[in-house]
Structure formats: C-alpha cells, structure tokens
Simulated scan of single mutants.
Amino acid sequence: MPRIAYVNGRYVPHSQARIHVEDRGYQFADGVYEVAGIRQGRFMDLTLHLARLERSLRELDIAAPLSTEALKIILREVVRRNRLSEGYVYWQITRGVAPRDHAFPDNPKSALVVTAKRIDPARYTRAMESGVKVLCVPDRRWARRDIKSIALLPNILAKQEARAAGCYEAWQVEDGRVTEGTSTNAWIVTRANTLVTHPSGPAILNGVTRQVLLKAAEMADMKVEERPFTPEETYEACEAFISSSSAILLPVVEIDGRKVGDGTPGPVARKLRALYEAVAEFSP
C-alpha cells in the first residue's frame, strides 16, 4: 500500500510530498520535530511528546500551526491512512516559507509535515538479546540540545563515524563527560548497582523514553544518579544501555572496543525494559 504524508493541510502520496524551496526548515534548519512510536496501532507516550514539542516551539519562538487537539487528529489520521500497526510517526514544524533572510520574517505562517514509517519489531528484539556496540566521539553540537531542532548535521556525522567503525551508536563526549548518543540517551550501571544518566538541561535532549525509564526505576526502588559520567567510567561499568522512542531500550555490550561487564545484556537493562510497558502511556 502506498505511504501517505500530510503536508500543510493536505494528505498526499508520500512520493508526491513537497515543500517550498524557501521553507526555512530547508534553508536554515529553522524548525523542530518529534517522533512517537506506534505499538499495535497505539501511540506511545504521546502526551510527553506533545509537551516537549510545545516547549521546543516556545524556545525558538515558532508559532504552533494549529491546536494540540487538531494536531492529534492529523497524527491519528496519518496512522489510519497508512494502516500503521508497528512503527513510528514523525512530525516537523518549521517557521514556514519566507524570502531568504537570517532574521525572522514578519508574520510567518508555520509549516507542518507528518509522515509515518513501518518498522519490524523483531529488529529491536534481536538487538535486545545480543546488545549493541558504542563508539565515543567528540560532541560538536550547539549549546541548546534540549530543543528538538531539525539541525542534526553534527549528529549525522557522529552516527556515520560510529557505523563506519562497526558500531550501532556514538556517545558524544564534551569536556571529558558523556552527554548522550546521536539519537539516544546514554546510561550506565556502576559496580555499586547505581543507575547513572546525564541530568536534563541544555547539554542533552530530555528524551521521552528517558523520562519514562526514570519513573520505572523509581517504581522499582533502584538507586539513580542523574550526573555526567566519563568514558573511563563506562569501561568499568557492569552494564550500559541506550534509550529512544523507536528502540525503547537497547543494552550496550561494547564501548570503544572494550566489553561492558561480561559482554552480554545485563539484568538491570532487562528489568527496566520490562517495566517500561507498565509505566508508558499507550493511547489510540
């Protein structure tokens, strides 16, 4: 079945989806985005995604193109038209179309694009069982990573460096501390059985799945520290994992060519992955 996209008020075949050449997202990366997972036809943690979207728009002074309730209707319709059961929905809002000028245009009209994509859940099931490899690289991004901006070139370069090294993800390092992955949040479990992840703030994107996993850890009475950690600490950790809306949680079994723990997915990662299902919001 052909994929369907939503572009500025119209549902169109994905292959025919078009934006204007002077859309500021295309010319300046002047926009934000969100990605929500779909499980058995239901949105995962949609409330948190919409709240983060509102914050990103506010931080960049971009007007929402429509109300939250209207946006929900469009997201659901894109899922319906694509007959999506397992996958994710991506939506992007830019400042809109205007003659090319770095300063904000007067009275811009925000632009909205929504797409959907199927995924094979077995892909992540296999990765959960085998674990993934991570490469540490310098963090070359801008100083407002808490905004989910579409300006992702440094992330892309770091991800490609990791893939070229045979790794699934890159952990970005700033001032000797791991911030996060290129499209994931980073976690370790110390030998004292403490769960550690970078605190929220301008240095990282406060991942929706990150927020849910922290609630799950609290529910399980796990000891948690939200603080930066060094690459050297990761080499000594007994477990490590990454989290994201698409993959939820994937154990990390190797960092910079060094085994994490015994080189297999550990019990804390497995427990948190199971607890996620009990804490996450699933909505139609």
Rank of each mutant, 00 (worst) to 15 (best):
I4C: 12
Y6L: 13
V7C: 04
N8A: 13
G9K: 07
R10C: 09
Q16G: 09
R18I: 09
Y26W: 13
F28W: 03
A29M: 15
A29S: 15
D30L: 15
T47N: 15
L48P: 00
L53Y: 04
D61H: 12
I62K: 01
L66D: 09
S67H: 05
T68F: 01
I73Y: 07
L75W: 01
L75D: 00
R76E: 15
E77V: 11
E77M: 10
R80D: 12
S85M: 12
Y88T: 02
Q92L: 13
Q92P: 04
V97K: 04
A98V: 13
R100T: 04
A103C: 02
F104D: 05
F104Q: 13
P105S: 09
N107G: 07
K109L: 08
A111Y: 01
T115L: 08
A116K: 02
D120V: 04
P121T: 03
R126Y: 11
A127R: 12
L135M: 13
C136L: 06
P138Q: 02
D139V: 08
S149Y: 10
A151L: 12
P154S: 02
N155F: 06
A158K: 11
E161A: 14
R163K: 07
A164F: 09
G166R: 13
G166V: 12
C167R: 13
Y168D: 03
W171N: 07
Q172L: 15
T182F: 14
T184Y: 08
N185L: 06
A192M: 11
A192L: 11
T197N: 03
H198W: 10
P202V: 03
L205Q: 11
T209A: 01
T209G: 01
T209W: 00
R210P: 01
L213M: 10
L213T: 00
L213F: 03
A216I: 00
A216Y: 00
A216S: 00
E218S: 14
E218M: 09
D221W: 05
M222G: 06
K223Y: 05
E225L: 11
R227G: 02
T230Y: 02
E232W: 03
T234G: 03
C238H: 02
A240W: 01
S243C: 00
A247M: 10
D256Q: 02
G257I: 10
R258S: 07
T264Y: 14
V268Q: 01
A269L: 02
K271F: 04
L272M: 00
L272V: 00
A274M: 12
A274H: 12
